[in-house]
Design a protein around this nucleic acid. Structure first.
Length: 571
RNA sequence: CGGGACGUAGCGCAGCUUGGUAGCGCGCAUCGUUCGGGACGAUGAGGUCGCCGGUUCGAAUCCGGCCGUCCCGACCA
């Protein structure tokens, strides 16, 4: 490509509305433009990167036996009603009707359609199957943000597997696990696989692939010692035991005027350190008031609660509800002597005594509470948010908590969809068996954004060779110098015939402008051709990733650069 | 959905308090001088001031409503 003919609208200033690094750099570099909130057009450079990412996805999924298909984006509501998701995923699912008043929807994912096709599977002899596609999905996110990180319309690679039994599903799952590790490696990202909550996908087990970035939306707990890693939505940790001070007798009321928070109580009374308090939270779960108890210095992780209770209908009770159920306002709530309300307590409270908690009477608390003696705990449930520094549940070393971007997610769906849609095959005895399914997704645009987030500097993006919009750029320093232009053209042709994806910057611009643009756009190799170097018979090769510069004889430049690029490609 | 900020030329912004018919920088076009890290001079093109309504002789500016965008939160594979 000749730069003078290319549409690469770079911007000198950061767009005013861009905050996230990927947003700033991809817009400035002329890769993408916004059409509306959460919808982006891919300009030529963005398209090139996307194509390269998609090719890697195809390579690796094909390598584990994947067969590519392409399914429609508009689905009949009917099949989503069969799986129950027509009603279950209210909100982000866009529904509409056609001229015949048929219920339709914009696909947010494709389990239903793949499953529909899979009803044509009739015999165990046809299994296993691994199908995938790269398709547009639309999710009406309440709040798109972060450039390409959270959008409404996006391309996703999703694969689906069909097996005769759980063992087969396990094999497919493990293969995807390995393929995903390779994929993210090839995309130039350090992706950490973590145990995750399955959310509304259901299923028994899921692993997310996370890339560390301050722009991310998920926290993971990570053990540097043993590689334990889990989304904080599921992570656990081991805690130092707390030694309670002895206390004779039962709970004792004491006045706590104006004190409404754990912190304030801890400051006012030396026996009421946060870890010696019981945090009481009233929640409405499936329309039932439930009192949740945690250690005072711990935080609730709602997702753990939802997963354990198998419901999405979880919300904090309102002020009115709290007063109605407990007879006091938030700040003085407690579980001692409470009847008729279900109590769920975090195991960190087990065996604790001489604790402080609200008295269910405004401005009064209780001290000397023995959790198991004084409180009728209905269920013990780990629902505590893990914090950095707590012990790894596997090896005890301190955990780290990192902010990350979720770039991929693999699920063991089990039989949820196949049962709902009647996907069965005959086994060797001629008996119909429900098929076991898995589903595995990678966001293409989000991956592109995540690479930018984790690989950039002050000057711009630093693409890995594998997905760079161009592998090399030839910067022609002086366009009105015939010898320079001729040498640059010759180099360009040689690299092209060598199979290198190269662009020649033949614009009549000052060198500074050209240098800045190549760096902003993030092309891994820049070959600078100018009269100054040519006088010595050399051109200059700059490697974007480490800034190293080599002067190389003109005649060897193409082969040296091509060799470097081939080496990078192989990595 | 709650809180906050914003909407004026392709991009970044000023003007609004105190109403008088729109300006700066970058970019763009032409010419000239320049040319190894975002040049300089000259000339020029380009704007429904987000939309609708109101107040007024007169609205980018004041008032009301709406729409859109971003950030925080809620939410979210």
């Amino acid at each position: 490509m000749r730069w003078s003919r290319a549409f690469i609208p770079t911007l000198r200033d950061d767009p005013a509305d861009a905050e996230a690094v990927n947003h700033r750099l991809l817009v400035r570099g002329g890769f993408i433009r916004r059409l509306m909130a959460g919808s982006w057009s891919l300009l030529p450079l963005g398209m090139k990167v996307t194509n390269k990412i998609e090719q890697i996805l195809r390579d690796e999924i094909d390598a584990i036996g994947g067969q590519e298909m392409l399914l429609p984006v508009v689905h009949p509501g009917e099949i989503w009603k069969k799986t129950g998701r027509w009603d279950d995923v209210e909100g982000i699912l866009i529904k509409f009707t056609d001229r015949r008043h048929t219920d339709l929807l914009l696909a947010m994912t494709h389990e239903e359609v793949f499953s529909t096709i899979a009803t044509e599977l009739t015999s165990y002899r046809q299994l296993p199957q691994l199908w995938y596609h790269l398709q547009t999905k639309f999710r009406d996110e309440p709040r798109s943000k972060g450039g390409l990180l959270r959008v409404r319309e996006f391309t996703m690679k999703d694969s689906y597997t069909f097996d005769i039994d759980k063992a087969g599903l396990d094999v497919q799952f493990d293969r995807h696990y390995d393929a995903y590790k390779k994929i993210f490696w090839r995309l130039g990202m350090k992706a950490i696989p973590v145990h995750a909550s399955s959310g509304w996908m259901g299923g028994s087990e899921s692993v997310e692939f996370m890339v560390e970035s301050p722009a991310g939306e998920d926290d993971i707990a990570y053990c540097p010692a043993c590689e334990y890693a889990a989304n904080t939505e599921t992570a656990t940790s081991s805690l130092e035991p707390v030694a309670d001070q002895p206390w004779d007798g039962g709970p004792e009321r004491f006045a706590t005027p104006e004190i409404k928070t754990i912190v304030a109580l801890a400051e006012a009374f030396d026996f009421a350190a946060a870890q010696s308090q019981i945090k009481s939270l009233l929640y409405m779960i499936d329309d039932e008031a439930v009192l949740l108890l945690l250690r005072g210095d711990h935080e609730l992780m709602e997702q753990k609660l939802m997963d354990a209770l198998e419901t999405f209908d979880v919300r904090p009770a309102g002020d009115d509800e709290i007063v109605t159920v407990l007879g006091a306002h938030a700040g003085s709530l407690g579980a001692v002597g409470l009847g008729g309300v279900r109590i769920i307590a975090d195991p960190a409270l087990q065996g604790r005594s001489n604790m402080t908690t609200g008295a269910n009477e405004d401005e009064w608390h209780l001290r000397g509470v023995d959790v198991e003696r004084d409180i009728e705990v209905g269920t013990w449930l780990d629902m505590r948010l893990v914090k950095a520094g707590e012990g790894c549940p596997q090896c005890g070393e301190p955990l780290e908590v990192k902010r990350t971007i979720e770039v991929g997610h693999i699920f063991k769906l089990g039989t949820k969809f196949s049962e709902a849609l009647g996907i069965t095959v005959a086994d060797e005895n001629g008996v119909d068996r429900i098929v076991w399914m898995g589903s595995y997704g990678i966001g293409v645009g989000r991956s592109m954004a995540a690479v930018v987030e984790s690989s950039h500097d002050e000057a711009g993006i630093v693409w890995p060779v594998s997905i760079a919009p161009y592998e090399a750029a030839i910067t022609v320093v002086k366009m009105d110098d015939d010898a320079t232009v001729a040498a640059a053209d010759a180099l360009y042709e040689e690299l092209r015939s060598d199979g290198i994806d190269v662009i020649i910057d033949d614009r009549d611009e000052r060198p500074g402008v050209k240098f800045a643009d190549v760096e902003l756009i993030g092309i891994p190799y820049r070959v600078t051709v100018g009269p100054r170097g040519l006088a010595d018979g050399v051109v200059e090769v700059l490697r974007r990733s480490d800034g190293s510069v080599d002067s190389i004889p003109v005649g060897e430049a193409a082969s040296v650069v091509a060799a470097s690029i081939r080496r990078d490609r192989a990595e």
